[in-house]
């Protein structure tokens, strides 16, 4: 089977299987295009990713491999164990999302760039979880947003949303 090499922006190479790479829609479509134009090829395909750093790429690939393994388990196990398996997957995802906001941000950008829909869903969920129930100031602090609104504008927005800010 053909191997795929993903190269992070600092030159670090990660080899993944085609099966795991199929979760990254960007890589998968690239692979399809290549196969359509050149036919089957056994050389490893090198994909440079100029805006993904090494540690984020590692994390993304960890997700792909793990999801792949879970998928195989899902198809192999009988229906009775599905619920148990779902719980297992949820537990793993919760563990996986224990990252700082900065890492989460880079992860969501990488997931967007590589087009991994499931990881993107997971990340947006986690981000929403970090916003939920916070005051505007807390949100700003948590995400490191610079106050881009002028005081008058902010006052205006505050007033229109007063019902939510008690």
């Amino acid at each position: 089977m053909r191997n795929i090499v993903l190269r992070a922006n600092d030159g670090a190479d990660h080899v993944i299987s085609v099966a795991a790479a199929s979760l990254c829609k960007t890589v998968a479509s690239l692979l399809q295009d290549l196969e359509a134009s050149k036919g089957e090829d056994t050389d490893p395909l090198i994909v440079p990713l100029p805006n993904v750093c090494n540690c984020t790429l590692q994390k993304v690939l960890g997700f792909c491999e793990q999801q792949r393994a879970f998928d195989e388990l899902c198809t192999a196990s009988p229906a009775a164990q599905q619920a148990d398996l779902t719980r297992q997957i949820q537990a793993w995802q919760m563990e996986y999302m224990q990252v700082s906001t900065d890492e989460l941000y880079h992860l969501v950008m990488a997931a967007h760039y590589l087009n991994v829909p499931r990881l993107l869903d997971l990340c947006t969920d986690a981000m929403a979880e970090r916003i939920r129930g916070k005051s505007p100031a807390q949100v700003r602090e948590c995400f490191g947003l610079k106050p881009s609104l002028s005081p008058e504008e902010e006052e205006e927005i505050r007033r229109s949303n007063l019902w939510a800010l008690n």
């Binding site: 981000m127 979880e129 939920r132 610079k146 949303n161 800010l165």
Partner: peptide, 27 residues
């Protein structure tokens, strides 16, 4: 943050958190 990601994040929120998030920055 790109608009579509931010949009996806905000889609997960309840109205009260959404209103609070709206006060955070211009984007």
């Amino acid at each position: 943050m790109p608009h579509d990601i931010l949009g996806a994040v905000l889609d997960e929120l309840d109205p009260f958190s959404l209103a609070a998030a709206a006060c955070a920055s211009r984007q």
